[in-house]
């Protein structure tokens, strides 16, 4: 074994499982590609349930369409933060440093920035300088743009995957890491909502491109997909929504499944 191999064996950091809650009008909802939203329940109750199941973190995505209603999420985050003591990430509609401050004050530990990072990359730098990298997550939505047989290439999309930016996903990931992002939340727009599993090639390419943790997202349909995101995609964490919301699997089952494949996870009694 090389010194590096020895050092890596001497690494007890677990891979994280992060349930994602889409929130609008004070409720958790679930839909495919932002349409056909179905009510999935009360945010605080759901957060508590996932915490009891051993979720490592929770991500709240505010999918409210209008900016007028954005602040509806603040009391939700406050209520969750009073009762659930694991890291909370909030994203959706974050436009300026003031939005970040409000979410952190309400009890978010990390804030995820997506479209605003594309339109104004210096926001990420300012936010990381001011609040620290540990609370700045850059969410990147990527879509495969290479044809079959070509070298793989992915492009960054914004506005829920509708708007092309012309930005290469790997370059973008490196740039955001340089700008001070503490973590990247990587969603494959091709896979999101399909239950066909992560785009593992994309996940691996981004995870290998940056020195910061990458959370894989988009496409989880079963527990093997979660394990693959870590072992084949090399993600530090895996995020999923529907498989947990509808009670198909508990977080605990997901962890036991991953542990059985030799993945280090935090198992709670």
């Amino acid at each position: 074994m090389t010194a590096v191999d020895t050092a890596l064996n001497d690494n007890a950091l677990t891979r994280r499982i992060i349930p994602c809650l889409d929130v609008t009008a004070g409720r958790v909802v679930k839909g495919v590609n932002f349409v056909d939203l179905v009510d999935a329940g009360d945010p605080v109750e759901i957060a508590q349930r996932y915490n009891e199941q051993g979720a490592d973190e929770l991500t709240f995505l505010d999918i409210t369409a209008t900016s007028d209603e954005r602040d509806v999420i603040l009391p939700i985050i406050e209520s969750v933060a009073k009762q659930v003591f694991i890291p909370l990430t909030v994203g959706g509609g974050v436009r300026q440093v003031g939005d970040i401050q409000r979410l952190l004050n309400a009890g978010a530990d990390k804030v995820s920035i997506n479209s605003a990072a594309v339109s104004n990359p210096s926001l990420v730098r300012e936010a990381a300088d001011y609040h620290g990298s540990q609370c700045i997550v850059v969410a990147m939505d990527a879509r495969r743009v290479s044809a079959e047989g070509e070298a793989p290439k992915w492009e960054i999309f914004t506005h829920g995957g509708r708007k092309a930016t012309g930005i290469d996903a790997l370059e973008w990931a490196r740039k955001m890491a340089r700008y001070g992002a503490g973590e990247l939340l990587l969603t494959s727009m091709d896979r999101d909502g399909t239950k066909a599993g992560f785009d593992l090639e994309l996940t691996r390419a981004v995870a290998d491109a940056v020195p910061i943790p990458v959370i894989a997202s988009g496409g989880v349909g079963n527990l093997q997909h979660l394990a693959d995101g870590v072992t084949l995609g090399r993600a530090s964490a895996v995020l999923a929504a529907s498989i947990f919301h509808y009670g198909e699997y508990t977080v605990q089952q997901a962890k036991e499944f991953m542990a059985a494949q030799g993945i280090k996870v935090r198992l709670t009694a």
Partner: peptide, 19 residues
């Protein structure tokens, strides 16, 4: 890890998560 090796996984910084 700009030039990733196939065999080894380089550790991310920050050290983030449950240990």
């Amino acid at each position: 890890n700009d030039t990733p090796s196939q065999e080894r996984e380089l550790l991310k910084v920050p050290h983030m998560g449950w240990n």
